[in-house]
Design a binder for these strands. Structure first.
Length: 716
DNA sequence: AATATTCCCGTTTTT
DNA sequence: CGGGAATATT
């Protein structure tokens, strides 16, 4: 029975689909048909064991959730299953149990920009407005704390040094601001639910009874909060199915804990473990190379990746003299491939850091290849969109001061900083919100601006009418009445017309309305807050894709180029910051396993970094690849032997002996003195010579000799 | 309020 | 080198 769900599955895949009771861990290698297995398993559960409404499937991205939902629905299963991201699930629960959670019903969800603004405000309130306390530095600290279920109180308690205590103060001020505005940031959604599940037995019982079968996809990417949520939901029944691949855990820096998946069997001793090791994506050689690389990791569960696919071509390693040559070669090859009939959308260029995209973009443009950069320029982060959202958020949650401050003079209506400051002062001294201050009377103190502020109050009153309308109508009403339509009517930038984006926003709302007729404006705001991209922004036409290794996870292409296989870039590291070499290796593994038929790893001996060419060293990862699967291509022409001679570099120990003031000898320029030294990935020295000229070198490779003076010799 | 200028800084970013 | 943000200028 239910043969349709088992059709075309291999043995371990079947086993996973048919496992219904108790904990299950599906270790799914790249290209092993994981999505197929989990959607069929969900369908099987729903058909044979339990009503769909008792099944909860959690993903990390909206895209994954959407895809899973669609695929499950296509398997003839009744609707009613909850398929959501961790964040959406938590938001929904907090909305539903807002009184238990002690939250206002209409709490606002802050995105990263909002959070940054609020942290900035917190920094200012702590009178620390130095550059040392850039919100961008504080934000990840707070975020990591929350992901590890540390609230500001815990953080304060464990703050040992001065710096940590300052951050603790900012953290606390930030929390106060959040509470005052009735806001939650992304991390709060998870933390709140995790803590409630642990502290509130009745809440946990209700949820556990409702979600009797839980599935968590990409389990290797769970942080502590997410781990605990899964744990508590499945505490008694242990009907938890975790799927993922420790070898593809690449978000440790964001709090994801690979230990969660590695210790699944310890957490759930009854667990059935299924390994999906057959790869349906790549050629034998690509898979063998990737498998050999990842084998160097210690922190993993051994898997034997294999495939029935063709052997294929060797993995190519191309080495260029400069990054310009690298880019040109790749661009021209892509040009040729697409002329020969390879669809550009089957080609990807992947890199470790976004800054590497530029060189490729320029070259690809010159070669006449159409491309798209898959970067996170999110639709909902566009200025005009956030302007409208500010109005809507303010209407729904008048305590949302941030939105008030944005809306009050957008579009410009002559309410300047001074007036706004005074309004805020008035609000503070009366203990009311700014919104209430404007809506109440007593604005005389504002002098000439009072009229304009009153007018704004009238506008808000008028816009308040839209709360009763369906979301799409409400948005349209706000866009026109607020003056945003007039303001943005003509604006067109490189991302398209602002008004076009606003119209798109309206139609997206209409779409949601037709799917969920009972959706309120609050629901819609929640939906947009948790949705970074929008369907229509998806790849149009046949374009080559340029993206980071992180962005490449989950995708596949016939032809893949990974560029910058150089020490410091891949694996990425900086002298001053520790990096996780195994995670870097996993990242490389993820990149390699994106390729179906052709994989090229490329490097350049000199790379343009911030406007200057820097000497680079081959990535140690290249040495870990099996030679018999590789084809080395020395793509450079000039004086290969001369280069090889020069490759010996100065050792770190020696470099430590150098400092400003060191006297040096250069074969051409003679005696000089070091007047500047910067250490980054490599060490740059500025040397001043007797004739007054200054020159710069990369110390590791410069033909400079240190001249010992007597006074320096003493130090030895 | 819009525009010019300077200064700082520089991984990855599912929500 | 180049983007973003904080200043300075008109």
């Amino acid at each position: 029975m239910h043969e349709d769900l088992l059709n075309g599955l291999n043995e371990p895949q079947r086993e996973a689909v048919l496992h219904t009771e108790g904990p299950l861990l599906v270790l799914a290698g790249p290209g092993s048909g994981k999505t197929r297995v989990i959607t069929r398993r969900a369908a099987y559960l729903a058909r044979t064991v339990v009503a769909p409404r008792h099944i909860l499937a959690i993903t990390f991205t909206n895209k994954a959730a959407r895809e899973m939902r669609e695929r499950i629905e296509s398997l003839e299963v009744d609707r009613g299953m909850t398929v959501a991201t961790f964040h959406a699930f938590c938001a929904r629960m907090l909305r539903e149990y807002h009184d238990v959670a002690g939250l206002p019903r209409n709490f606002t969800i802050l995105d990263r920009e909002d959070r940054r603004k609020l942290i900035k405000q917190a920094v200012e309130e702590c009178a620390l407005h130095d550059a040392n306390w850039a919100p961008g530095k504080i934000e990840p600290v707070i975020s990591r704390a929350k992901n590890a279920l540390q609230g500001h109180a815990d953080f304060t308690e464990s703050a040992s040094d001065w710096q940590a205590r300052q951050i603790a103060k900012i953290f606390e001020a930030y929390e106060t601001l959040l509470t005052r505005m009735g806001g939650l940031d992304f991390d709060d959604l998870l933390m709140r639910v995790a803590l409630m599940l642990e502290k509130n037995a009745s809440f946990r019982d209700q949820l556990e009874n409702r979600f009797r079968y839980v599935l968590v996809d990409e389990y290797q990417d769970t942080n502590l909060a997410q781990y605990r949520i899964a744990r508590m939901l499945a505490r008694d029944r242990e009907n938890l199915c975790a799927t993922g691949d420790p070898d593809q855990s690449i978000y440790g820096w964001r709090g994801a804990d690979i230990g969660n998946i590695l210790s699944f069997e310890r957490d759930y001793p009854r667990a059935n473990v299924v390994k999906l090791e057959e790869n349906y994506r790549s050629t034998k050689r690509i898979l063998a190379a990737a498998d050999a690389l990842i084998a160097s990791n210690v922190h993993r569960k051994a898997k034997t990746l294999w495939t029935q696919n063709a052997e294929g071509a060797r993995v190519r390693v191309t080495e260029f003299e400069t990054s310009d040559q690298e880019a040109k070669f790749i661009a021209e090859e892509i040009r040729r491939l697409s002329d020969e009939g390879t669809s550009p959308k089957e080609i990807a260029v992947i890199y470790r850091v976004n800054s590497l995209s530029r060189g490729i973009e320029e070259a690809v443009l010159r070669a006449g290849v159409r491309y798209q950069v898959a970067r996170g320029v999110e639709f909902y982060n566009r200025k005009e969109i956030k302007d409208v959202l500010a109005y809507l958020r303010l209407l729904v949650n008048p305590a949302d001061e941030m939105s008030f401050l944005r809306a009050v003079n957008t579009p410009p209506r002559g309410i300047g900083d001074t007036t706004v400051d005074r309004l805020v002062q008035m609000a503070r001294s009366s203990g009311r919100s700014v919104y209430e201050t404007v809506m109440g009377g007593g604005l005389e103190g504002l002098g000439r601006s009072a009229g304009k502020v009153r007018q704004f109050g009238e506008l808000l009153r008028l816009l308040g009418e839209s709360l009763a309308k369906p979301a799409a109508d409400a948005i349209a009403f706000v866009v026109s009445q607020s003056g945003l339509r007039a303001h943005y009517g003509q604006v067109v930038d490189d991302e398209g017309s602002a008004m076009g984006n606003l119209d798109e926003l309206i139609s997206a709302a209409a779409e949601l309305q037709s799917e969920r007729p009972d959706a309120t404006l609050v629901d819609w705001l929640e939906h947009t807050a948790l949705q970074s991209e929008v369907d229509s922004v998806k790849s149009e036409g046949g374009r080559v894709t340029l993206m980071t290794l992180h962005a490449a996870k989950g995708l596949e292409f016939d032809v893949v180029y990974i560029i910058g296989l150089e020490e410091g870039l891949m694996p990425f590291f900086r002298e001053d910051m520790a990096s996780d070499e195994e995670e870097e290796r996993r990242l490389c593994f993820v990149g390699m396993t994106r390729a179906r038929k052709s994989l090229t790893l490329s490097l350049a001996r000199f790379r343009m970094i911030r406007g200057r060419f820097e000497r680079s060293v081959r990535s140690p990862f290249l040495r870990e690849l099996p030679k018999d699967q590789l084809e080395w291509v020395e793509a450079d022409d000039e004086e290969p032997d001369a280069r090889r001679e020069k490759k010996s570099s100065r050792l770190p120990d020696d470099i430590d002996e150098w400092s400003v003031g060191t006297v040096v000898q250069h074969p051409l320029h003679g005696l000089g003195r070091v007047i500047g030294m910067t250490r980054t990935r490599l060490t740059h020295v500025d040397v001043e010579f007797d004739d007054g000229s200054t020159r710069q070198w990369v110390l590791e490779y410069a033909p400079l000799t240190r001249v010992e003076l007597e006074s320096q010799a003493d130090c030895d």
